[in-house]
Every structure is written in structure tokens, then in C-alpha cells.
Computed example of a mutant assay.
Amino acid sequence: MENLQIAIEKARAIRQEQAALAQMPTAVASTAEQNWNALPELEIDPTTLIAKRVMTQKSNAHSSHYDMLRTRIRDQAKKNNWRRIAIVSAGPQVGKTTTLTNLAFSFGRLPYHKTMVFDFDLRRPSLQTLLNHHPTTQIDDVVEGRTPFEAHCCRVGENLAFSLNAQPVANSAELLQSDGMSDFLSGVQDIYEPELMLFDTPPLLAADDTRGFLSNIDAALLIVEAERTPIDQIDVVEQQLSELTNVLGVVLNKCNYPDPTSTANYEYY
């Protein structure tokens, strides 16, 4: 009888421990949800976005290629447990930021999938221009503890948030490579639990900002411009990226000749 009582008590203790563990993710998720919803909401004029070639606020013929890219990124991220993706280019003016913004709004349409976007092209921040927003805070003040993140980051709708900068950041390479930046990103991930964090980064060959920052991310997506980015430059950048992080893929931007194998070219819409 005594052995039975011991077994019963042991089983009860295990059951109570399992019940407590089962409740923990719900509590954490609830807190993360509250933190996310507490971010100030940013209202964006859709016509402004369209004028800046951001076409993915709604699902349509113009969004289809970005939606396909979104799905491929999401699938690879889930498969490899990647949360942080850097958007990279070899040089400037290839459409990197526009591609990122279209991807961001495409991800923003996914239900129950929170995406947080960071403008880390700190020498020439331009994401706020595409969104026609005038931020009053800077990411360096957030990382260095002078401004709370919740006063800096803005939420667009339910599933998308942006960290924007109004002007260039001094000592950008040192900031991006600092231990403070690493701690900051870990803290954001723990508190808000976004499924994906996307980073607009400086051109890889222009400065050492991106090279030093890539240790903080899981994978990089390379944007190249059709008929302008040299093939040998693509090879060099892809090789450098592969030495620093995982290469998610290469996006050929501004292409005048559609891929004949892509179903997005069919008259679906």
C-alpha cells in the first residue's frame, strides 16, 4: 500500500509539472502579444506606397512575384529555424530597399506571422522615405539605452513593425558590430517574439558595416540588378556572404525579361 501511495504521489507531481510547462508558452505568448500591440501604430497612405513602387499591401498581379519570394523565404526560414534575414546588395541603387519594403508588406498580410523590419543601412537610411514617415528617434539611441525601443519602433497593422531612422548614424560600423547590438537584437526577439526579422543593410562592397553585422543574423538574401550588376561582382559577394552566414538566395531585380517557367506570368489575375 505504501508503494502504491508513493507511485500515486509521483504521478501527481509529474502531471502537475507537465501542466505547468504546458501553460508557460501561453503566458509567454500572451506577454509578447501585449508588447507587440503596445507599439505605436503608424498610418501609411497606400497611394504614397504605390507611387514609390511598393505594390504588396494587397494581393494582386503586381504582388505575385514578391508573394512567391515571401513563401520561399518563409519555407526556408521554418525549415532551418532562421529568424533574422539580412537583405544585401553588392553596390547601391539596385532596388534593395524597395525589394525589402515590398517583401515586408507581403509578409504583413500573413496571419499570425509577425515580421519586424530594421533600417540598418545606417550611412544612408532611406526606408522612412519610401514610407513617407518622419521618425524622431534613432536606432543608436535605442541600442545605447537613451531611448526605449517602444518609443522608436512603429507597428503597421497587426503583423508588421518598422524600426526607422531619420538621418545617418555616426560610427555605424562600430554600432552594428558592437556587443550592445547583439544584446539588443536578442532582447527584441525575446520580448516581441517576431517570427521573422528583416534587415536592410549597406551594400557589402561599399563599407565594412554589413560584413561586421552578419554574425548577428541567420541568413542573407542578395539583391542584384539585371544588366547592371557584373557577374564577377555577384560571384565575389556571394562567396563573401557564404563565408559569413547562410546564403538564402539571389534575387534578380529590375528584370525586363520575365522567367518563362514562372507561373506568376500566367493570366491568373
Rank of each mutant, 00 (worst) to 15 (best):
M1Y: 05
E2K: 10
E2M: 06
N3K: 03
A7Q: 12
E9I: 10
A11D: 07
Q16R: 10
Q23P: 03
P25L: 05
A27F: 09
A29P: 03
A29H: 06
E33M: 15
N35W: 01
A38C: 03
E41G: 09
E41P: 11
L42Q: 15
I44Q: 07
K52Q: 08
M55C: 04
K58Y: 02
N60T: 02
A61Q: 15
H62G: 10
Y66E: 02
Y66M: 12
M68L: 14
Q76L: 14
A77Y: 13
K79I: 09
N81A: 10
W82D: 00
R83G: 14
I87Q: 13
K96L: 00
K96M: 02
T97F: 01
L100G: 10
F107D: 12
R109T: 15
T115P: 05
F118R: 05
S126V: 00
Q128H: 15
L131A: 01
N132K: 11
H134F: 11
P135I: 01
T136C: 06
D140K: 07
D141N: 13
R146N: 12
N159A: 12
F162M: 10
S163L: 05
N165V: 09
Q167E: 07
S172I: 08
S178L: 08
I191A: 02
L196A: 02
L196W: 07
L198K: 01
F199W: 09
T201Q: 11
P202C: 04
P202K: 05
G212F: 06
G212D: 07
F213N: 13
N216C: 10
D218M: 01
L221P: 08
L222D: 00
I223W: 11
A226V: 01
R228M: 08
T229Y: 03
I231L: 06
I234F: 07
S242E: 06
T245D: 05
V247L: 03
V250G: 08
V251Y: 00
K254M: 05
N256M: 07
D259V: 05
T261G: 02
A264Q: 15
E267Y: 14
Y269G: 11
